[in-house]
Design a protein around this nucleic acid. Structure first.
Length: 582
DNA sequence: TTTAGGG
DNA sequence: CCCTAAA
């Protein structure tokens, strides 16, 4: 349960792969760069396998490579002798390099059945948790090999039907238990991944080699567990994340009880459009579950579902973002927003499962179709205004460290009432409460400290608009809940503001922002305006009698009296002076 | 876009 | 701070 579906590294690598695929034109396929492309083939009308066209490749590129690998007809690069023989036995030279034997419907049917059986066997024999004690050959076939050993089409077109792993399952495969790390170094030897491999016993290095042999690319990951997992997944094509992923649902969606059929359909739909149902090449694939469980979108899974899938994707997009935001707290609002907009769901969707955190998903009916959504506890920072008492309590707790909460409350109300701003006595209180509630103690307290230490330099020097340690980016979804990032005003900022106001006049926020706050990237003109408003209130609230002011220390930071006076001065002055004056 | 206000 | 209506 609760298994980690993927890791950060995981994602990165996946991206890398996909990137490669994307960038690498087919022509250069046989270069080491792209082990995937040159293996794409399709079944021509006569049943022959022909190299995929750029177009088709592009299509494939749309999807996750790893998944593509499963569903595309790959040619075994260099199967081990035994393997080949097996192939021959079972498939009886279905496809040969030069001449492809058109498969009959009967055959394919039979074949599929076989596959189905095999899969069952595999499934049965493979422990759910797939700790990969022993890997059935069936589990790992071609797909592994696919990735490496760039072979020209001509030679390997022998079969699209690696599928014929019709071979019987070999529950126990003693030989080649350990992978000689050296062996795999130069030329990936499939044997390595073919035979039974007890990953558990392998050293990291060996695991890495295995990984390489399996996926055709290097990995720097040193996490043994991760490697094992990856390899397992790669070989078995089952991400086996028992926990969640009701991806099985997808299978259902894809219809068909028979997975193999599914896959073949998929393939047909995408790569081999004109291919007859018989498609001689069929790839091993109990893939559906795997890919989808990762949240990878197979909109290409089935023609019929493509639209739905897309729709689902759109729906899921926010989800993804959601997760991201939950994970990364330091992005500025703007940044995350922009990213959101620019993100491609295809790519992003993968990450649903990234992160080292467990991703639990559930299927939720949405827009007619069911989509997977993570069981993420949405830590929304909404302000439950209804629950005033709760706020009070929280507020109290927050302030307790510093002083009496009651005092602060009292203060707040005091501050407000005398002020000319009579709008709503409760308003300010709520604000205060909400603010303190939303902020962590860390932030809240610093607000006061700020006055003294003027961390302002950080801002000006770093010009850090993005890296401010705010609470986090605002989050909005559906209900429109969000959390605000709070940045306490520093004394210098206040001073600057006052200066700006005196210089450009209140209301010229954009000016002030431009000239006086150029170094403070955050603080929009609106912020300035708001702050000024607050200062104004404060100044008027306080000045009448200093006694009041004494209470005020809590509400917000204590602004030096002089400044407040200055503020009031400016305010009065400007209010008296009609606009036309300036 | 910028302001002014309400929340 | 956020959100919006106005300008």
């Amino acid at each position: 349960m609760g298994t980690v579906v993927g890791t950060v590294e995981d994602r990165r690598e996946m991206f890398d792969v996909s990137a490669q695929t994307r960038i690498t034109p087919f022509s250069s396929a046989n270069q080491i760069g792209n082990p995937v492309a040159y293996k794409l083939v399709r079944v021509a009308g006569d049943g022959r396998l022909v190299p995929a066209t750029d177009e088709e490749i592009l299509e494939v590129n749309e999807i996750d490579v790893s998944d593509a690998c499963q569903s595309l007809g790959y040619l075994p690069a260099e199967g081990s002798p035994s393997r080949l023989s097996q192939l021959e036995e079972t498939s009886e030279g279905l496809l040969r390099s030069d001449k492809v034997e058109p498969s009959t419907d009967q055959y394919s049917e039979e074949f599929l059945q076989k596959v189905e059986q095999d899969e069952r066997l595999v499934m049965v024999s493979t422990p759910p948790d797939a700790n990969i004690q022993c890997c059935n050959e069936n589990n790992m076939f071609d797909e592994d090999q696919v990735h490496h050993e760039p072979l020209p089409f001509s030679s390997d077109v022998q079969n699209g039907c690696d599928v014929n792993q019709t071979n019987t399952v070999e529950p126990s495969c003693p030989k080649e238990t350990a992978l000689p790390a050296s062996a795999a170094s130069q030329k990936p030897d499939f044997a390595l991944v073919r035979g039974e491999i007890c990953l558990n016993d392998l050293p990291i290095k060996a695991l890495q080699e295995t990984f390489r042999a399996t996926f055709g690319r290097e990995t720097t990951v040193k996490d043994k567990t991760w490697l094992k997992r990856r390899i397992t997944m790669g070989l078995t094509k089952s991400f086996d994340v028992p926990t969640t992923n009701l991806t099985i649902k997808d299978n259902k969606l894809v219809g068909i009880k028979d997975k193999s059929n599914d896959v073949s359909d998929d393939v047909r739909a995408t790569n081999v459009k004109e291919a007859p149902s018989s498609s001689a090449y069929h790839v091993n694939g109990h893939s559906n579950a795997s890919g989808r469980s990762l949240g990878v979108n197979h909109y290409w899974a089935t023609e019929d579902f493509s639209s739905e899938e897309r729709a689902a994707k759109r729906v899921r997009k926010p989800t993804r973002r959601y997760i991201e935001e939950l994970e990364t707290d330091d992005k500025s609002v703007v940044t995350s927003k922009d990213q959101r907009l620019s993100e491609k769901s295809e790519v992003r969707s993968m990450s649903v499962s990234l992160g080292k955190r467990v991703t639990v998903t559930r299927v939720v009916p949405l827009g007619g179709s069911e989509v997977e959504v993570p069981y993420v506890s949405h830590v929304r920072r909404s302000r439950p205004r209804e629950n005033f008492m709760a706020l009070m309590e929280c507020h109290t707790n927050c302030l307790e460290a510093k002083g009496s909460a009651r005092e602060s409350n009292l203060l707040n109300s005091e501050v407000v009432s005398p002020g000319s701003v009579v709008k709503s006595a409760s308003g300010p209180i709520q604000k205060e409460l909400a603010t303190s509630h939303n902020n962590t103690n860390e932030e809240y307290i610093p607000a006061e400290a700020d006055q003294d230490m003027e961390p302002d330099h950080v801002d000006s020097s770093g010009n850090s608009s993005d890296e401010y340690n705010n609470t986090g980016a605002p989050m909005m979804q559906g209900g429109g809940l969000r959390r605000k990032h709070h940045r306490a005003w520093t004394l210098t900022e206040v001073t600057t503001l006052v200066e700006g106001v005196s210089k450009y006049g209140a209301g010229k926020w954009s000016e002030i922002k431009k000239f006086s706050f150029s170094s403070h990237s955050h603080r929009t003109s609106v912020d300035l305006k708001d702050k000024w408003r607050n200062l104004l209130r404060a100044s008027f609230a306080q000045s009448p009698s200093n006694t009041m002011g004494s209470f005020k220390k809590h509400g917000s930071m204590h602004i030096p009296v002089e400044i407040l006076l200055q503020v009031r001065e400016l305010a009065e002055k400007q209010s008296l002076v009609p606009p036309n004056h300036r």
